[in-house]
Amino acid sequence: MPGRTRPIDKLAAAAAKCTKEGSVYGKCIMADYNNVHKDKCITEFLKLKECYLTAYKKR
């Protein structure tokens, strides 16, 4: 649809601004990806999400 940004495009644009936090989080999961449990990397994820939310609101 013209003139309308799809939510996934907004999400992708905001996520692209947080590659540094994203790679920290990715490395945390990758360090032991055979044993992942809930909230294993919660601190790293919260940093990533905070960055993402700021980037999302700035638009």
Binding site: T19, G22, S23, G26, M30, Y33, L48, K49
Partner: peptide, 15 residues
């Protein structure tokens, strides 16, 4: 969920 999408994208990139 957006949290899962966001986390999945970062893991995809790292892995």
């Amino acid at each position: 969920q957006r949290d899962v999408l966001l986390a999945g994208e970062s893991i995809y990139r790292a892995l």
